[in-house]
């Protein structure tokens, strides 16, 4: 007996008029401050990101990224301090290794590499932050919504 929640979800082709939802995990010390600077300096960037502040890019567990993708976002950006500038000395360098493996693995499985991106943005780089958000938003816009493993369930049934 086939279950409705077990069926294959097709990749969507609807790319027109589509605004992606992107989660940005930003480290407290550099990228979050960079985003702040972009704001106070009035740099324009697409309003597609939802920021989650984390203490350090080293705090990111790949689980968070996958969970975000499963829960309905179309892409994830993780951003931390430039190598050498980590508030915790080396958190971002540990993170870089994890990210490298994760990026490779998701690509290998067939998830578009643009869905999950990593970047370095310092507290002084407001303009760079805005540029990166533009790029990430554009990339994901081109891909369209991520539907093929989003958690969803069909709502059939009678109203009681």
């Amino acid at each position: 007996m086939k279950q409705s929640d077990n069926k294959t979800i097709r990749r969507s082709d609807d790319k027109t008029n589509y605004e992606p939802k992107i989660v940005a995990f930003l480290c407290n010390w550099c990228s979050y401050a960079g985003a702040d600077l972009a704001g106070v300096s009035r740099f324009q960037y697409p309003p597609n990101i939802r920021v989650i502040r984390v203490p350090c890019s080293g705090r990111i567990n790949p689980l968070y990224i996958i969970k975000a993708l499963q829960s309905g976002v179309d892409g994830v950006l993780v951003s931390g301090c430039h190598p050498g500038d980590c508030h915790y000395i080396s958190g971002n360098l540990f993170a870089r290794r994890k990210f490298a493996l994760m990026k490779k693995f998701l690509d290998y499985l067939g998830i578009e590499p643009e869905r999950v991106q990593f970047s370095w943005v310092s507290a002084a780089e407001g303009a760079r932050f805005a540029e990166i958000i533009k790029k990430v938003t554009n990339d994901i816009k081109k891909l369209g919504p991520l539907t093929y493993f989003r958690k969803d369930f069909e709502k059939t049934g009678k109203v009681l």
Partner: peptide, 19 residues
């Protein structure tokens, strides 16, 4: 173990740079 250490010059070709 590889994820319990790092090297300053680990490759980072996958990082996003502004266009």
């Amino acid at each position: 173990p590889p994820l319990a250490t790092f090297s300053a010059d680990d490759k980072q070709e996958f990082m996003t740079e502004p266009e």
